[in-house]
Computed example of a mutant assay.
Amino acid sequence: RGSGLPGMSVAWGLWAQDSGMTGHLGRVDRARLARAGIRPMATSVALELFDVALAAGQATPVAAEIDLPALRAQAGDGLMPDVFEGLVRLPVQRRNATSGTAAAGSDLAQQLSTMDESGRRELVLTLVRKHATTVLGRTDPSAVTPARPFKDLGFDSLAAIELRNRLVTATGIELPATLAFDYPTPDSLAQYLRERLQPAAPPLRPAAILAELDRLETALSTMASEEADRPLISARLISMVAKLAQTQTPDKTDVRERMDTATADEIFDFIDKEFRQS
């Protein structure tokens, strides 16, 4: 074509009739294509499109039968490929996909923050199983057992990418393309997502720590002196106090270095403070 000679490469959609390129496609693969808005073409329709492509005179025409309602559903979920954006009117949340995804992740994180560990595990695992069920073209999430590897469930690389894309939209966090291979079971994947969605708790302020110590002191005062666990609790408390004292003890090497570089006034000030502390 660049030299002015005739040439054309047709980018074919899915033919309904099996061929060497499509004969290996199973139920999961065809369901994925259907969700993406690609419908299988009858041979007669495909041949008509071939005639249209010849007449169009373009170098790389696309000959495919597109399911517009399916594309709109993909767009609504934030999953429609950009190449199809000119075919359907995008919903507001798709036009602003970044903020929409972030908002979804924020809502999920907020929901998790109000739950205990058991509830968080159940919620995220349910989310993973729901999207895995959709990717597999099934309707019953109970078929996606938590400990069963995705590979055994029927996942291939394309299914793994679709699951990752769906979870990015649902959680609002960036996830690696190798997600389903790095965390090969629904259970391990859910645990990873929980860790990503739940930020580490901020360190307690001194007032909060003192309040916890007050509660601990009250609890210890009600403990019977003959309880079998008393020595274990005492040893644990002694260990905690020792660690706390250790963090407050200045490092001898650091003190020596400071003394070597200190002025006379700084040395006398240091000695004076030490005597007053004693």
Rank of each mutant, 00 (worst) to 15 (best):
G137Q: 06
E174W: 07
R205S: 14
T171A: 07
A34R: 02
L204M: 07
S113K: 15
E162L: 05
V45T: 15
N96V: 12
E266S: 11
L71W: 13
L244N: 09
P231A: 09
L204E: 06
V62M: 12
S3R: 06
M115Q: 15
T169R: 12
L153M: 03
M80L: 12
V124L: 09
V88D: 00
P6R: 09
P184Y: 10
E274A: 00
D67T: 14
A64V: 05
Q111C: 13
A211N: 11
S3A: 02
V168I: 14
M240F: 03
S188K: 09
A177F: 15
R194L: 04
L90K: 03
L244Q: 07
R95C: 04
P202M: 05
A208G: 04
S239I: 05
S9C: 13
M8F: 06
R89G: 05
A180P: 10
A177C: 12
S3L: 03
R148K: 15
V10S: 00
T43W: 10
K151L: 09
T222I: 03
S225V: 14
A11Q: 15
W12S: 02
G7H: 08
A245Y: 03
A109L: 03
L175V: 04
L244E: 15
L112D: 03
V28M: 04
P61V: 14
I161Y: 06
G26I: 10
Q198W: 04
K273C: 05
R194K: 08
A31N: 00
Q110D: 14
V28R: 01
D229T: 12
E85A: 11
A63I: 06
A53D: 11
K252E: 14
T60W: 14
T261F: 00
Q110W: 08
R276Y: 02
R276K: 13
S239N: 04
T145W: 00
E212G: 02
D182K: 14
R205Y: 11
E257G: 09
T249F: 07
R95E: 10
L204N: 06
A200S: 13
L112R: 02
Q111E: 15
D254Y: 02
V92T: 04
A207K: 14
M41C: 07
